[in-house]
Design a protein around this nucleic acid. Structure first.
Length: 926
DNA sequence: GGTGTCTGCCCC
DNA sequence: ATTCTGC
DNA sequence: GCAGAATGGGCAGACACC
């Protein structure tokens, strides 16, 4: 039996060097002296565990219980302990110090052995109740020498802090027993126990370890990449792009009923199913609603097992729920049926590690994906992760935006040639998240660190101002991450010099609120943790802003605007094109060919092309009465003037294209179908919504309409019309096959020029988009339009010239800034504000660009808002807090919106955005 | 029974 | 989770 | 490039205390 003191002494000498090879050597020498039983324990302890990884037991002892135990034995005040802890930064070091000062403990002889300690720790895990646990710890520490106590405390605190973890133990074992380190890692992964691995290595039995179903293996992890060039550099051979889901990483084991040898999982219909979390904890019972759907993946007559890697995601219908919803299901003793219904989940599989009796982790991702694709992964509860293969990064920005629009965090980019490397965080998997915004905040308090940061005030609480006018500071988060050691030292010294008040024995210092930091984060969420009512998810510091005075830090209003308080409401939407086509077919087959069908569509190229395609197809399939209507310049189907227009036609059935969807009926009593790609805000009764808002990537409306029509008849002769809408809305590089096909068929040049012409009519001062519709209806190709000499096309040409002239004038307008917003004011009868906004968005990527046009409609301001900042404009505008009233704004896309408001209301909006005071309206013609 | 504190190789 | 640092 | 260390927020459970 080896003594604990030897373990402690070895740990001391390992801690004394920073050289990894020396550490491994010292550890090897120690291991060499141990008998098998002690080697198991010693290896586990040095890896920082008490129990093997796959063991589900926990100790449930932390800093508070250790404080009680140590102060009892050393017979000191709690405050003395806390003072020491503040100074030393490690409860183990404190134990050593105070017990050395204690006569009884310092004179003890070492009696504890490794095995001895382990059985006491097992006992500790076995009892329940803080009191009994604390008294067990107290008795244990009472018979320990100061040095032994130091390491017992470190083990209980969960961290040895000697610059060595499990990986280094593997390394030491490999060196000692002269076997390849990869082999040791492999066996450790399979066994899930570094202790058992050590024994197998010593007795040259590493080959015996086999991958077994229902024994989880470690997960392959990804490295962060914020720069797409890294993708090009790392994966020149091609890569896969997948959504990064915000859920819980899970490994699913599914096996035939004959395998009854395992403790993990549960058997259903002769099939065993188990789920494991990233820390290899079994979470089968947390997600009981997934068991049966997963079991279905295996046909009853086979005994073949499966291991899948994926993510458990909270999802209702097509809508992905916030991660916090999912957390409500975690760590529960029992997950009740109500909770299962309140937070439905699905398992989204994106990798396969075992199938057909063979281990697949040595196969390249490309192969594994092919095998995964052969499974039936298409139910409500078990899905296949989105996966596309690329050769270059040109489409990645669009993929990223689409992933975000689906409610996911970002993208995963994976090397198609890479094998699955358990437990590794390599560059073969990259995660792309992109911070959404930054905040300038001021440090209000600093806390001393632990471990090597014990000498510094290394953790900073920071605040924002209540408002521009109210200087009260409200805390919003804490961080140290992102600072270099030098910066931590610098800020620490500054905080010491500017401390106003010390709390908790100097652990917390309230400091003068003067030092400004720029921080970033993944998301702002409502929270009771800080007095601002908000907290940051994954906060980190970008830089110290010594250039910025406290008066200029961000305000609570900014924070509110960044908070994700709104969600796409519970609207039933088709999850993909196939589902949408089914719905559309159904609608068409239920309509009578003699009914009056009315189509109201938007006036831009996307809307007009969508309307024309639908009109042509309806007529082609035998409908005799089809009317198209274009809304007035407000482009709002719910505006009274437009409603009147529709009513006047006395429709039997109404299609509303590219104009959004709200919960109020357009014409009460008239059945309506909305076809759209904006964020839906509700659905009226007696209506159908076909929206692509949740699809990936999001197509434009003319493309949706075209694709729907192909489901009922041949429409290929209208492909160029759809392409014009797509180019107008999404650009000529939009990631759709149809676009590429039409570009070769009609040439990109003609398509582009036709698009400009079709768009010109609604931008010109004498708003008349019906001309564009007429041109589309009377021509047969984009080339036909471009070369046409009809009066309508001539009209479009002169409209285009007019827009060009107006654009030249408006380009000279300079932005003014307030908070997150860059405002450009123009005065033009033409609808050029969206074009101007588009041109500024890339030049001001950190701002929300708002281009306000005061000359478009008399008495009104029409504005376009665009951003590349990642801030969701729909949420932003909704959170500005403009009271209800005349006009409308804040509909559309996450990063492209706008509105039309009476002048006074627009000025009210401006002042809420921080522009003050609003200037008088510009004189027309200026 | 309500509230506050501590804990989790928790989950991210 | 994120980030920096020493090997 | 990797492993180690030090740090964030939110949730449920278990208990202590009132």
């Amino acid at each position: 039996m080896s003594s604990l003191i030897e373990f402690a002494q070895t740990a001391e000498s390992i801690a004394a060097t920073s050289k990894r090879t020396t550490k491994a050597l010292l550890l090897g020498e120690y291991f060499n002296k141990l008998v098998d039983e002690d080697l198991i324990t010693g290896a586990r302890f040095f890896a920082g565990y008490i129990f093997p990884l796959r063991d589900q037991r926990t100790i449930n002892i932390g800093g508070a219980a250790l404080l009680t135990a140590i102060t009892t034995i050393a017979n000191i005040e709690k405050s003395k302990y806390q003072e020491r802890l503040v100074k030393l930064g490690d409860p183990g070091d404190v134990a050593f110090e105070v017990l050395s000062d204690n006569l009884k403990s310092s004179e003890l002889a070492s009696t504890l052995s490794l095995g001895n300690l382990f059985s006491k720790l097992e006992q500790l895990a076995g009892v329940s109740g803080t009191k009994s646990k604390t008294s067990l710890v107290t008795e244990l520490l009472r018979i320990a020498t100061p040095l032994e106590a130091k390491y017992i405390v470190k083990l209980l605190a969960g961290d040895l802090r000697i610059g060595l973890k499990e990986g280094a133990v593997e390394d030491a074992l490999a060196r000692l027993f002269k076997v390849p380190v990869a082999k040791v890692q492999w066996v450790n992964m399979l066994t899930g126990d570094i202790g058992e691995t050590a024994i197998l290595a010593r007795h040259h039995r590493l080959e015996q370890a086999k991958m077994r179903l229902f024994h989880p293996i470690k997960f392959m992890l990804a490295s962060p990449a914020d720069d797409l060039t890294e993708v090009t550099k790392q994966m020149p051979q091609g890569f896969a792009v997948e959504d990064k889901y915000d859920g819980i990483r899970a490994q699913v084991h599914i096996g035939g009923g004959k395998r009854q040898d395992s403790l993990h999982g549960t058997v259903i219909n002769d099939c065993r199913v188990a789920l494991f979390s990233r820390t290899l904890d079994e979470i089968t019972w947390t997600f009981t609603d997934l068991i049966e759907p997963l079991a279905q993946l295996i046909s009853d007559d086979t005994d073949n097992g499966l291991i899948l890697d994926g993510e458990i995601v909270p999802i209702r219908g097509a809508k992905i729920l916030p991660f916090q919803e999912l957390q409500k299901r975690l760590g529960r003793k029992q997950v009740k049926q109500e909770l299962i219904e309140e937070v439905p989940v699905a398992f989204i599989a994106y990798d396969i590690l075992y199938a057909n009796n063979s281990v697949l982790i040595e196969e390249p991702l490309k192969e594994r994906r092919t095998i995964l694709d052969s499974l039936r992964l298409d139910t409500e509860k078990v899905k296949r992760g989105l996966h596309k293969q690329f050769d270059d990064i040109s489409g990645l920005d669009a993929e990223f935006a689409a992933a975000r629009a689906r409610g996911n965090e970002g993208l995963m980019v994976k090397d198609l040639n890479s094998t699955y490397k358990p437990g590794r965080r390599g560059k073969e998997w990259l995660k792309i998240k992109r911070a959404i915004a930054t905040l300038d905040v001021v440090i209000t308090a600093a806390e001393v660190g632990t471990g090597k940061r014990a000498r510094f005030l290394s953790d900073y609480t920071f605040a924002v101002r209540q408002s521009e006018t109210e200087p009260t500071l409200l805390n919003i988060g804490k961080a140290y991450s992102g600072l270099t050691d030098a910066e931590v030292t610098e800020i620490s010294n500054w905080c010491r010099a500017h401390t106003i008040q010390e709390l908790e024995h100097g652990r917390v210092c309230i400091v003068e609120p003067k030092l400004v930091l720029e921080v970033t984060f993944d998301r702002v969420q409502p929270s009771s943790r800080h007095n601002s009512g908000f907290a940051l998810r994954f906060p980190r510091i970008l830089r110290i802003r010594t250039d910025k005075p406290v008066e200029e830090i961000d305000t609570l209003e900014t924070v509110q605007s960044l908070a994700e308080t709104t969600h796409v409401n519970e609207i039933n939407v088709p999850p993909n094109l196939e589902a949408a086509q089914e719905i559309f077919k159904n609608i068409i087959s239920n309509l009578d060919k003699n009914q009056h069908i009315v189509i109201m569509h938007d006036s831009d190229a996307d809307g007009v092309t969508a309307g024309v395609i639908l009109q042509k197809i309806l007529q082609r399939t035998g409908f005799v009465q089809v009317t198209r209507i274009i809304p007035d310049r407000e482009r709002n189907a719910w505006a009274p003037s437009n409603r009147d227009k529709i009513k006047a036609t006395a429709p039997d059935y109404l299609f509303v294209l590219d104009l959004g969807c709200q919960s109020e009926p357009v014409i009460p009593g008239i059945p309506t179908c909305f076809i759209d790609h904006h964020r839906p805000e509700g659905t009226p009764p007696n209506s159908t919504l076909i929206t692509a808002y949740t699809w990936a990537p999001i197509p434009n409306t003319s493309l949706i309409v075209y694709s729907l029509c192909t489901a009922i008849t041949d429409a290929t002769d209208l492909d160029w019309i759809a392409a014009i809408g797509t180019i107008s809305d999404l650009g000529e590089k939009a990631p759709f096959e149809m676009l590429a096909v039409t570009k070769t068929k009609y040439t990109a040049k003609y398509l582009k020029e036709a698009t400009t012409l079709i768009n010109a009519s609604r931008r010109a001062a004498d708003y008349n988009p019906e001309i564009s519709a007429k041109v589309l209806l009377t021509h047969n190709s984009p080339r036909d339009i471009v070369n046409s000499t009809t009066p309508e096309v001539e009209q479009l040409r002169s409209a285009r010239e007019q827009v060009k002239v107006e654009m030249e004038k408006a380009r000279k307008a300079a932005p003014t800034f307030a908070g997150l917003v860059a405002l450009i004011r123009i005065n033009s009868p033409c609808q050029i504000h969206p074009l101007i906004a588009q041109s500024w968005r890339t030049r001001l990527p950190k701002y929300i660009v708002i281009v306000a046009n005061e000359g478009y409609l008399p008495g009104k301001v029409n504005f376009s808002a665009r951003t590349d900042s990642g801030i969701n404009i729909l949420d932003f505008l909704r959170n500005v807090g403009l009271p209800e009233g005349e006009g409308s704004y804040g509909h559309g896309h996450d990063f492209a919106s706008g509105g039309s408001l009476p002048i006074t209301r627009f000025y009210e909006l401006l002042s809420k955005l921080g522009f003050d005071p609003p200037q008088p309206p510009l004189i027309s013609g200026e």
